[in-house]
Design a protein around this nucleic acid. Sequence first.
DNA 1: GGCGTATATGTCGGACTTCTAGGCATTAGA
DNA 2: TCTAATGCCTAGAAGTCCGACATATACGCC
Lengths: 111, 111
Amino acid sequence: MDKDKKEFLKGTLDMLILKIVAFGPIHGYAISQRMKEISKDFFQVHQGSLYPALHRLEDRGWLEPEWKESETGREAKFYKLTRKGRKQLENEVESWARMSDAVKTILRAVE
Amino acid sequence: MDKDKKEFLKGTLDMLILKIVAFGPIHGYAISQRMKEISKDFFQVHQGSLYPALHRLEDRGWLEPEWKESETGREAKFYKLTRKGRKQLENEVESWARMSDAVKTILRAVE
DNA sequence: GGCGTATATGTCGGACTTCTAGGCATTAGA
DNA sequence: TCTAATGCCTAGAAGTCCGACATATACGCC
């Protein structure tokens, strides 16, 4: 992943994970694929980022894990959004909107 | 600054600084005011973030400092964009556009 | 049966960024 | 004279993300 993408992922990863989990219970490995797929290869979350992030979100009470059998017949940890997580997602989406507006304003500013 | 804003500033600070300096030579203190002003109080860069960032950008050859007298009659370090810096800014703006599109796509995605 | 690939979870160390909290000095104004 | 605003800076802590590594199962192929 090139340097810019790396930088820009910071601070948005949690929101993107929450959003993907919001569609319904899903396990970690599938999240990384889904993220890559929806973003048309832009966001590639590495395992060293993903799993710590999932644990972080779980610790904060935004995600709830459950071991279940995956589509391929293997045991996998499916995460689902908690009520708190849904609220958090709403807040982050709103913050994101205001923040990207602010950036747009600065980038468009003419002396 | 609340937590979300803090998170979202990550990875965009350098670009915003470069953009503001692109308007013409400006010193650090004025950059923080300008950023706050243009973004309508959204981005408040703390000095502990700003000055290390300026040194970082200088080290990378994107900014060039010059001591001059400020509007208030005091000595201040005015930064101006180098040719490399202008190129870097273009790249970052382009990356930002693609990245925010990718985020938008994910946020808008419906199962 | 043996092998490689995709699936699946996880840890560890390091690089980097930002914040908090300070320090220092000058100038203008009450 | 003392206070606020201007202007520069650093040190330490906290947090995020990545690259590399470790482990294990399922499946297809030979």
